[in-house]
């Protein structure tokens, strides 16, 4: 390895460290609700204090958002990789669950849940 190689490695590590710190401080507060977007459009917002199971049947496929004990996770996904189920539970603002094949993103936000639940079609 040459000197400049180490420089590249150091620069990338530094950038990764800075980004990690920024994201850590940007989020981290306990959130109020989970906002689910499909294809970039808000499909619904659900309060974290409420225990609930919300099914999402979109043209891309099926996922169920489960909120238990103030945390949200995804179950029953029929996507090929099931990564969304493996991403675990989220409860702090900015944390996300992503199902790429279904273009579905669940993100914890500070706000309260909206009164009207819109189920994605």
């Amino acid at each position: 390895m040459k000197k400049k190689d180490f420089l590249i490695a150091a620069a990338v590590l530094l950038l990764a460290g800075i980004l990690a710190l920024v994201f850590r401080f940007a989020g981290g507060d306990p959130g109020g609700s989970v906002q689910v977007k499909v294809d970039g459009r808000v499909a619904g917002t659900y309060a974290l204090v409420e225990e609930q199971r919300v099914p999402f049947d979109t043209k891309y496929g099926h996922n169920t958002l489960v909120i238990e004990g103030g945390k949200a996770h995804i179950e029953d996904a029929d996507c090929p990789d099931h990564y969304c189920e493996q991403q675990g539970e989220i409860s702090k603002t900015g944390e996300t669950l992503v199902c790429l094949p279904h273009k579905l993103v669940a993100e914890v936000i500070t706000g309260e849940a909206s009164d009207v639940d819109v189920v994605a079609k």
Binding site: V12, F23, K37, T96, L100, V105
Partner: peptide, 27 residues
């Protein structure tokens, strides 16, 4: 690409891990 597919910038949160992963696999 993933951020464009799901139209969510939040995916940037994965960048730190992915940067380090790319560095390790690249090495």
């Amino acid at each position: 690409t993933a951020a464009i597919v799901v139209r969510t910038l939040q995916l940037a949160g994965y960048l730190p891990v992915l940067l380090v992963a790319g560095l390790v696999t690249g090495a």
